[in-house]
């Protein structure tokens, strides 16, 4: 035994193999809904990125032009104009920036906070678990919108405050998901094996426990972004979200409400924007869930 390793000659037939994530991605591509969702989101991100180049915020997005007010969709104004003569196409395109920033921003903050709390609760257990989870339970028992309303009314209306307000409810969700996942992974033998290897605790959590909790976290993330975009729009609709005249989708919907009869496109188009975005996120989330857990498939 212990033949001297001749790595050069044996390198040729190294088995190419896919990591779990490559395999998941492969499975995900087989799911049509998920692919459609992914493409839609990709397009949306591109729109959000190029809209500052395509439109001038001061003149085209919020600049009023009473001469062109309430024109229906036409070649000049694809989505028509609102009651101040602002081009709805420009406003909806620009609005994707708000929805994406608020959606991903709030959920990302929630992810960080929730994961840390959930990991501590799940890993330490005992009194830490009790304290953190009861605290989370309190937040869970209050409707999300209610919490957001309270926070925004205390801090004042601004995009940043809205993100903070919405991140609270995202964090509670992540905390629960991560705690459950950590508790399962914590008792796996490879974690014990890492202790036997002499790894410090923080490294075990970062390197072995959390990466193996990723599946539920990713699914939770995509689905939560959708929910958060709806919440943000609802708050804007209620007038405590992104302050006017910024073209947040919920605000657009709210603005068009009074013109529902004569200029229904003012409501329908922002509504569709919200609908498709959330649908795309849910399609992707469901696709990811199936791809990450092949056992769910028949």
């Amino acid at each position: 035994m212990a033949k001297k390793a001749n790595t050069v000659s044996t390198n040729n037939d190294v088995i190419k193999s896919r990591s779990q994530f490559q395999e998941v991605f492969h499975r995900l591509l087989k799911n049509k809904g998920a692919v459609i969702g992914m493409i839609f989101l990709l397009v949306l991100v591109i729109i959000a990125l190029i809209s500052p180049l395509a439109f001038d915020y001061e003149t085209q997005v919020i600049g009023q032009n009473m001469a062109d007010r309430l024109q229906g969709p036409s070649a000049a104004h694809w989505f028509g104009t609102d009651e101040y003569g602002r081009d709805l196409f420009a406003r909806i395109m620009w609005g994707s920036r708000y929805s994406l920033i608020i959606g991903f921003g709030a959920v990302t903050i929630g992810l960080v906070v929730g994961t840390i709390l959930g990991a501590i609760a799940g890993f330490k257990g005992g009194i830490w678990d009790q304290l953190i989870m009861r605290f989370i339970d309190i937040f869970y028992s209050i409707p999300n919108i209610m919490i957001a309303v309270v926070i925004v009314s205390v801090l004042g209306t601004s995009t940043v405050n809205l993100v903070i307000a919405l991140s609270f409810s995202a964090a509670t969700g992540f905390c629960r998901v991560v705690r459950a996942a950590v508790m399962t992974v914590r008792d796996q033998e490879y974690v014990e094996s890492s202790y036997a290897m002499g790894l410090p605790t923080w490294k075990i959590i970062a390197k072995h426990i959390l990466p193996n909790c990723l599946s539920p976290i990713i699914v939770q993330y995509t689905l939560q972004v959708g929910t958060t975009i709806i919440s943000a729009s609802s708050l804007s609709f209620l007038g405590i979200g992104v302050p006017a005249p910024a073209p947040e989708w919920g605000a657009l919907l709210s603005g068009g409400r009074s013109r529902m009869r004569d200029a229904s496109y003012l409501c329908v188009l922002p509504g569709l924007a919200i609908l498709f975005t959330v649908l795309a996120l849910n399609l992707l989330g469901d696709g990811l869930r199936d791809a990450l857990d092949p056992k769910l498939k028949k």
């Binding site: 990591s19 779990q20 490879y190 094996s193 290897m197 002499g198 605790t201």
Partner: peptide, 27 residues
């Protein structure tokens, strides 16, 4: 834990279940 870390080089363990004792995300 800290003082043991040095000794982990000298004492090792082989586990029962080769299906759960290896981190599935590492090659």
């Amino acid at each position: 834990m800290k003082k043991m870390r040095r000794l982990r080089q000298e004492m090792q363990m082989i586990f029962q279940d080769p299906f759960s004792s290896l981190d599935p995300r590492q090659n």
